[in-house]
Nucleic acid binder design. Sequence first.
DNA 1: GTGGGTGCAAAGTGTTTGCAAGTGT
DNA 2: ACACTTGCAAACACTTTGCACCCAC
Lengths: 158, 158
Amino acid sequence: MSAEDFKSAKEKFLAFIEGKGLRLTTQRMAIIDTVFSTEEHFTAEQLLDWSRQRDQSVSRATVYRTLPLLTESGLVSEMDFGKDHKYYDPNYAQHPNHNHIICQDCDRIVEFESEKIERLEDEITHNLGFSLKTQRIQINANCEELKKLGSCRNKDCR
Amino acid sequence: MSAEDFKSAKEKFLAFIEGKGLRLTTQRMAIIDTVFSTEEHFTAEQLLDWSRQRDQSVSRATVYRTLPLLTESGLVSEMDFGKDHKYYDPNYAQHPNHNHIICQDCDRIVEFESEKIERLEDEITHNLGFSLKTQRIQINANCEELKKLGSCRNKDCR
DNA sequence: GTGGGTGCAAAGTGTTTGCAAGTGT
DNA sequence: ACACTTGCAAACACTTTGCACCCAC
């Protein structure tokens, strides 16, 4: 993400906050800075950890109270990969149609887009009498490298 | 679902159970009968209710202990529509790759399959160094009929 | 100053599990 | 008989919320 994208996503959110007449507390600012300076998918707990590195006083409750604001603003999307916790995706504003491959071995999440698939989805949906509003593809996969070599070089592979 | 499909899905599961050396208790039978006599997507709680109509002694714990067997057998699939509870889909055995259109107007869930999309998904996943294990597409859509006519004839349209 | 915001801890919610009693094979 | 199963209730993991204090505006 370029410095300009960073600036604009964060500023969009600040404008959103201001538009709702909400306040800019130091804790919220720490959370916002954290969210808009990463490209990774994160969980509520990770966001708490990272935010606390910026401001020790951030509490779990404030993180959980801020997340709905982020998703409501449209700048972060909530993803459910079937794990016990939700993931949050800060790349949504730039790529609203991106899809996910979730590696069962690594827990790695890889994103992809495909215009061809989008076109097919649109066609099928239309033929069934609906108009496509949003779509999402989740692919659960295995790491081929792991299968072949017995290990996998993704640094967070377990 | 035809009577034959009904018979075979249930029998497949009974064979699966037997193959694992597990027992056929009356409670399990009530749950199994329930699952394989519906085409609807259901939640754990609904399955408990329905099963209790067949056998009052079925407990929540047994339902939760049976669900993993059902998904493990491949005859029922676990679906996450982003709600707080999981849905289970008993149509999986016949159509292992089916996808869902969720109508925002009707709350109707329509299923579809597409070999073309499957091929594209497989290709993309492979190119990224993974092998596709399972996939799932969710399309949130609007009802075109509703948009044009101001109402929609789906009987459960709200 | 005031109304929204915060941390803490308790409460919720859906799901899982330890245990002693029960039951299919 | 034996090992698998069950119901119950307690335990869990993640998320939400009530409350009294706090602070951005």
